[in-house]
Simulated assay, not measured.
Amino acid sequence: MKFSQYFSLIILSTILVSCSSDSEPSSEADKSETPPAVSPIPTETYFPPISRTDEWETITMESLGWNEDEVSNLYFFLEINNTDAFIILKDGRIVIEKYFGDFKSDDNHAWNSAGKNLTSMLTGIAQEENYLNITDPTSSYLGEGWSTMPIEQELNITIENQLTMTTGLDYTVDDIFCTDPECLTYLNDPSTFWYYHNGPYTLLDDVIANATETDFNAYFSEKIKEPIGMQGLFIKVGYNNVFFSTARSMARFGILNLNEGNWDGTSILSDQSYFNAMTNTSQNLNPAYGYLYWLNGKNTYRLPSSETEYTGSLIPNAPDDLYAGLGLNDQKLYMVPSLDLVVVRMGGASNEELLGPSSFDNELWELINIIIE
């Protein structure tokens, strides 16, 4: 099954509603369920309650000095580009929350490859708990024969290679999402070439599950989802393990990132060395890639489904310190430490079905800048 078909599987999200015991407000327009904006402008980070997912502080664009007159242009752009959900948080508080068409705030949506961020942080947690070390060979947790390579070549591939897209596995195979051994063959030595190869990434889920000797969803729920009040579920779709959740749950994960793995005093990921490596250039082959995180503000970048190196910043209109989860059909989770902003976009493809970054990123940030500057 091709990954481009996954978006059609959003109907699966209805089974996820039971993942959260609380329902969220139905839409931005339902003002009766939205808490009043706070004043004066708070500067400390706000963490929405874990027990009440419908409770979330807001703050007005007027109080922030943002240009509210330009919001209608942003909404028009989002609507004509097949957006379902859009959120902007400032210091954890909701400034903009908008749903389009029949999509509601308690509807679940596929993160697609934006969910790689979840797996990356969970890998760091597993390492912190001494279940694994990212310098370990992948074979230590998958066993010998997870590929069709000779064992000498197989042992050269590490968990870190999986996190950085530098396994050297053959990406010219018919299906780069395939995780069957016959799909996993040698092309380059590990750490010598960068290519966005999804199969080796997906196998990280089995690495974590085998290392922790627990179900992958259960470990994720215990370590990240429940402690920060997310809901949602990883669902096997073809070869891929796709996360489905509400837009607000994605926003919660964004807050966790901006606070470097800490949630309101509770340490979710305390290993700052890992966090910094995860959200900064992880290798010299693609400066715009960390541990499964996309990075802005670098001099060059590479894109999925391409061997080309491009000059310039990944998203020129966005702040240089932005890092992100970017998924098929323009699923976006942007985090900007310098501005204390989290931006979430869920929906259908804006134009082309691209696996991660797209022209939509730059166009969207042009409109955001007009509002916040």
Rank of each mutant, 00 (worst) to 15 (best):
L12N: 05
C19D: 13
D30V: 11
D30K: 11
E33K: 13
P48C: 05
P49Y: 08
I50F: 11
G65H: 09
V71K: 15
N81T: 15
D84H: 07
Y99F: 14
H109K: 03
S113G: 00
G115E: 08
N117F: 07
N130A: 11
I134R: 07
S139R: 03
G145I: 11
W146V: 02
E152T: 15
T164L: 06
T167H: 12
L169H: 07
C183L: 06
D189Q: 11
P190T: 02
H197S: 00
V207G: 00
N210H: 14
T214Y: 13
T214A: 09
E226F: 12
G232P: 03
G238E: 10
N241A: 01
T246C: 03
G254C: 04
N257Q: 14
T266E: 13
I268M: 00
S270N: 13
S270V: 14
D271I: 01
F275Y: 10
A288E: 05
L295R: 12
Y301W: 07
L303V: 14
T308W: 07
L314Q: 09
L314I: 12
I315G: 02
A324E: 11
M335P: 00
V336H: 08
L339E: 13
D340C: 04
R345D: 01
R345P: 01
R345E: 00
A349G: 09
N351M: 03
N369D: 14
